[in-house]
């Protein structure tokens, strides 16, 4: 029997399924590692960094200062924070905002997103008020303009009124120290060109 030559069969196509499985395993593994390292796969990458902030003119909370207008923010570096009294994560973020406001590094402008003015004011009275101005955005016009998905979200705006950074969640101490504060310091030293 052994002297009958075996028919020549091309075997490499049988490796294709194995290759597909290996490639998929690699992709899934990478994704799992990303999630492990804190990258949230549900985050939508922002397209707004380095684009001018949208124009807005938001009514102030009753009895609390002036309207929040995009025009007024130009000429200085600003941190714009979207929050709401209904937002649980905002409570967690709030002590950090208060600390930033106390440090005087940057003025924080608040957007009371989809909130009742009374509820916003009560919330600020209870948790403390880190904001320079607070504008109401009851129907999400400003929020959609900023591509906001869920509160809290914050934006660093430079002197020219250009969005330079988006923080898609809670500003933690680590993010503030490592990324946001150094960026704001750098932007403050940039000259105003317009």
């Amino acid at each position: 029997m052994s002297d009958i030559p075996a028919p020549k069969v091309n075997r490499w196509p049988y490796l294709i399924p194995l290759a597909v499985v290996l490639v998929l395993a690699g992709l899934f593994g990478k994704r799992l590692l990303d999630v492990e390292q804190g990258k949230d796969p549900s985050l939508i990458p922002t397209v707004l960094e380095n684009t001018p902030m949208p124009a807005f003119d938001l009514t102030p909370l009753p009895g609390r200062g002036d309207a929040l207008r995009s025009e007024d923010l130009k000429g200085q570096v600003t941190l714009v924070n979207f929050w709401g009294s209904w937002c649980v994560a905002c409570v967690a973020e709030h002590p950090m905002l208060l600390e930033i406001a106390r440090s005087g590094v940057v003025k924080i402008q608040g957007v009371a997103w989809r909130d009742e003015p009374d509820a916003s004011l009560a919330w600020l009275a209870r948790h403390g008020d880190p904001f320079d101005k607070v504008g109401q955005d009851p129907r999400s016009h400003a929020a959609i303009g900023f591509g906001v998905v869920a509160a809290p979200e914050s934006f660093v705006i430079d002197k020219q009124g250009v969005i330079r950074y988006k923080e898609p969640g809670i500003i933690t101490r680590e993010k503030w120290q490592a990324t946001i504060k150094p960026l704001i310091e750098r932007l403050k030293s940039e000259p105003l060109t317009k």
Partner: peptide, 23 residues
């Protein structure tokens, strides 16, 4: 719908979807 990710804003009950519909 940017919050629920696999629904159209026409189908979604999320508040941001409602505001996008209104816009």
């Amino acid at each position: 719908c940017v919050q629920c990710q696999n629904e159209t804003i026409d189908e979604s009950n999320a508040e941001i979807a409602r505001d996008m519909r209104l816009l």
